[in-house]
Design a protein around this nucleic acid. Structure first.
Ligand SMILES: [Zn+2]
Ligand SMILES: [Zn+2]
Length: 653
DNA sequence: CCATGAGCCTTC
DNA sequence: AAGGCTCATGGG
């Protein structure tokens, strides 16, 4: 028997593929076990090796795990495209997307307990015109569809109809939501409506649970899986529809390599599979809105027929000219809250900062307490009496001023913990807090929401978690305590994020019978975003798009951010300078660059960071310039210096 | 003479 | 990334 050479994708760092030999014929997409260096790794057969070097001694494939391949060819095509577009070697792409516990796991015969008859597939009687126009997309090849509709406009109902239609045609559905662990309601709702227990997939599941869902979906047994980003990467050769809910969520962008944008990957994958993808949001991303405008996506706006209630008018409170209580509440907002409590109605207050205070400032010399590993001010937590760095996670139990050694500090910049303290002094025990610090588990979250829902508390204060679409009929007032920190970020999406957050939180007020009111406190009432909150959303998108165009930002230009980081400051600087010179030499006139410059957060985890940004209208230039960066880095790198190539970046600090 | 540990090199 | 290798350092 002759020897076959196979290229394998292994979940290891150095490069894309490694070549191994086997006497057997192994189909592409099979999982194999091999010796790699001195350890054992599991990988995927990518294909027959195209070149064999005589001076490399190839190892034999140890074991083939599958009798039929787990990863379809189209899946591998998607994988290659991802690796190529995001400038990430296949190995890193693989380790970022497929759990090791899956790669090495025995294929399970999952009994998913679903009989065809028990699935509730009868379509809704509703004559909603969107149903008719949308269900046609199932089984008609690739299409990207943007569903723009506020909460309560029936978005989820449309997803359910599409899922049913797709299952009816014998195909499977992948349904992606951000932060599935925080929104178990949607799973319950889908399960009730479809008549089977819908499996959930995300990276925090136990390996056992993960394997069950993975193999259950892969075998075609589960007709639907709902999950976080990683659910998109469960392979199956029978996928008929991909849904991405809350498509505007910036958490769909993965920060670690491969730093892919899930929504964009979903569209790319659907295109490869030749199936429809549906993106839904009450406040679509500017990118998706633009794609809808230029015809790349089909645009479907859900008119507010489903609930006649209009959004309440959003009013701005200028903090510069207001009397302010405890540096937190304008007298005007205080009066409003007081009035609502007297009528036993409920209030939601948004403050986008966790902990007690944003900064600790030395009373003696005025120095801000900083993390020793990062150039970042420490957040103080009163409960537990410690300071914490939000970038490296380091906790400081005992701290003193780095300049004068004193340990007497003034807290500055309120977080939710302090806000609760102040509000309790003003309004009594009727205040409850909701942020990721108070939510340590599903159960805790559910109990906080239930307590508030049942009326045990009148005021809930929290971070953006409170904007996540929970419905509280008694909420008639929404207050935004401070949005200015979000708007002052050096980030071209700051405006968009603020708009989305404000619209989402405003949507929590007076959703039902009672009339709602929304107040936003700010020191910068003249900022354009505030003028657009009460207009038609179209106006916001058009203005934002023209601003983006004027400043050469996405979606008009592609962006790549290069970060060089190193424990030695001068080495990082020099390397970044050389690489940026090489790129500037090679770039065409339509390509624009920014930097190099020290990153806004100069030091993270003891690594000094230099940043360089490329903007180009031409997608193919990304690959070319990216390769220049990587090749030069390979030559220049010393010690533990790192290069990060972030294609379509969302993080600019 | 060997134990320890910091760089750096290789992984088909 | 991570194990392995090399070479410098240091105590007995
Ligand atoms: Zn001091
Ligand atoms: Zn830190």
């Amino acid at each position: 028997m002759s020897l076959n050479y196979y290229d394998l994708i292994l979940p290891v760092v150095p490069k894309g593929t490694f070549t191994y030999t086997s006497e057997h014929d192994i189909p592409v997409g099979s999982r194999v076990k091999v010796f790699f260096g001195s350890r054992i790794e599991h990988g995927i057969v990518k294909g027959k090796a195209d070149k064999i070097h005589p001076d490399i001694s190839y190892k034999n494939i140890n074991e083939v795990l599958d009798d039929k391949p787990v990863f379809p060819e189209k899946y591998l095509t998607m994988f290659n495209k991802m690796s190529n577009y995001y400038q990430t070697p296949l190995g890193i792409a693989m380790r970022g997307v497929l759990a090791k516990s899956i790669l090495s796991s025995e294929r399970l015969d999952v009994d998913c307990d679903i009989s065809d008859k028990s699935i509730l597939l009868s379509l809704s009687n509703d004559q909603h015109s969107v149903y008719a126009s949308l269900t046609k997309i199932i089984d008609s090849g690739f299409s990207a569809n943007l569903l723009h509709g506020i909460t309560g406009s029936g978005k989820t109902e449309i997803y359910i109809e599409l899922v049913k239609e797709c299952i009816k045609k014998g195909k499977q559905v992948i349904y992606i939501v951000p932060e599935i662990s925080l929104t178990p309601q949607i799973v319950q709702r889908l399960s009730e409506r479809l008549g089977f227990s819908v499996p959930v997939y995300h990276s925090k599941l136990s390996p056992k649970r993960k394997q069950k869902v993975f193999w259950g979906f892969n075998s075609g047994c589960y007709p639907l899986v709902i999950g976080a980003r990683s659910a998109l990467f469960i392979p199956s050769d029978n996928i008929g529809l991909i849904i991405v809910d809350e498509e505007h969520e910036s958490s769909f962008k993965q920060e670690e390599s491969p730093s892919y944008q899930l929504r964009d990957m979903a569209v790319m994958y659907a295109d490869i599979l030749n199936v429809p993808v549906v993106l839904g949001s009450a406040t679509p991303s500017v990118e998706s809105y633009f794609n809808a405008l230029n015809g790349k996506y089909r645009y479907l706006e859900l008119n507010k027929r489903f609930n006649e209630k209009q959004l309440p008018e959003i009013k701005i409170i200028d903090l510069k000219t207001s009397d302010i209580i405890d540096n937190l509440l304008s007298v005007k907002l205080y009066d409003k809250i007081f009035e609502k409590i007297k009528q036993n109605e409920q209030v939601l207050l948004l403050l986008n900062k966790k902990g007690y205070s944003k900064h600790l400032i030395c009373k003696k010399c005025g120095t801000t307490l900083q993390c020793l590993n990062c150039s970042i001010a420490l957040t103080y937590y009163k409960k537990g009496d410690y300071a914490k760095c939000s970038y490296c996670g380091e906790i400081y139990k005992f701290f003193k001023c780095s300049e004068c050694g004193e340990n007497d500090f003034l807290d500055f910049g309120h977080g939710t913990e302090k806000a609760v303290e102040i509000l309790r002094e003003l309004f009594g025990d009727t205040v409850i807090k909701l942020d990721t610090d108070s939510v340590t588990s599903h159960k805790k979250m559910q109990s906080i929401l239930n307590d508030f829902y049942s009326g045990k508390y009148n005021i809930m204060v929290g971070t953006q978690l409170i904007a996540k679409g929970f419905n509280f009929p008694e909420v008639t007032l929404v207050g935004v305590l401070n949005i200015d920190n979000l708007l002052s970020l050096p980030d071209f999406r700051a405006n968009e994020r603020a708009y989305q957050l404000l619209m989402q939180v405003a949507g929590r007020a007076g959703r039902f019978i009672k009339k709602g009111e929304v107040f936003i406190q700010t020191y910068n009432p003249e900022m354009p975003v505030f003028q657009l909150l009460n207009s038609d959303s179209e106006k916001f998108y058009m203005e934002e798009l023209s601003r983006r165009k004027e400043h050469d930002y996405p979606p008009f230009m592609r962006m790549v951010r290069i970060i060089i980081s190193d424990t030695k400051e001068d080495r990082a600087k020099k390397t970044m300078e050389t690489i940026s010179e090489k790129i500037n030499e090679a770039k065409s006139s339509e390509t624009k660059t920014l930097g190099p410059s020290p990153a806004p957060i100069f030091k993270i985890k003891n690594r000094y960071r230099y940043s360089f940004i490329i903007k180009t209208p031409n997608v193919s230039r990304i690959q070319v310039l990216g390769r220049i960066a990587r090749e030069n880095f390979e030559v220049l790198k010393k010690g533990n210096m790192q290069l990060k190539l972030d294609v379509d970046p969302y993080f600019f600090m």
